[in-house]
């Protein structure tokens, strides 16, 4: 038996899934000291696609991520995320938007005094997602973290924390993922593990944008690349 979708719903679904998940149009951003980081910079990212942004230190990778997360608003141009223009959103709406996407900052955003389970639970609660405890435990088990689930994050290594950040994004399965240097300070095996997670996210329909400064990242991900080097 086939299910008929009403016309207006079909149009909504078509519009919702056909539009670019992330769209930057003629972005110009200057640092407070007047140095221009980008001049009329544009890009578009659709669902089930990955994009790498390469650049050495000071090229503006982190600034771009902050702009995309709505943390920096002093720019010219148009930035659209999930069909919403960032500059038109109020602070509360920007926070709401951030809640709906997945992201990694240059420094981990975790709660060191909480254990692994609590960290993931808080993160998923903030994203308004309900996951059974058993579901979290099973994900941790599948990825070799079951022994660490009651450990405080202050007792874990940098690499482990970055992996946990990736895992919680994976559990959230957002439509857009923005990561600032997720491969920084990771060994080769961990880089491959993380790359495989990014590929899994893309296969499940997410769009992923990741910045990097280490050329070895290209050995793990063969995504289109934008170079911010001047």
């Amino acid at each position: 038996m086939s299910t008929k979708i009403p016309c207006h719903m079909a149009f909504f679904l078509f519009y919702h899934y056909s539009m670019a998940i992330l769209k930057i149009d003629e972005l110009t951003y200057r640092l407070p000291n007047g140095r221009a980081l980008y001049q009329d910079f544009s890009l578009e990212l659709d669902s089930s696609a990955g994009l790498l942004i390469y650049g050495p230190t000071g090229s503006g990778k982190s600034s771009l991520v902050k702009i995309l997360l709505g943390l920096t608003r002093h720019y010219r141009g148009r930035v659209e995320i999930l069909g919403k223009e960032l500059k038109r959103l109020s602070k509360a709406k920007t926070t709401e938007l951030r809640r709906s996407i997945g992201f990694q900052m240059e420094e981990p955003v975790v709660f060191e005094e909480m254990n692994l389970m609590q960290n993931i639970s808080v993160y998923l609660n903030l994203s308004r997602q309900k996951h059974a405890k058993s579901e979290i435990i099973s994900t941790l088990y599948e990825n070799g973290f079951s022994g660490l689930r009651n450990k405080r994050l202050s007792a874990l290594s940098w690499g482990e924390i970055r992996m946990i950040e990736a895992l919680r994004i994976l559990m959230k399965s957002p439509r857009l993922i923005i990561c600032d240097q997720p491969f920084a300070a990771l060994d080769d095996d961990t880089m491959e593990w993380l790359a495989s997670k990014f590929r899994a996210m893309i296969n499940s329909g997410s769009a992923v944008l990741a910045t990097f400064s280490r050329p070895e990242v290209r050995d793990h991900l063969d995504w289109p690349e934008i170079d911010l080097t001047r």
Partner: peptide, 13 residues
């Protein structure tokens, strides 16, 4: 510090 992280992850002010 915790408030900053929670706000970044989506908690309202």
């Amino acid at each position: 510090g915790t408030a900053g992280k929670l706000h970044l992850l989506g908690m309202s002010r």
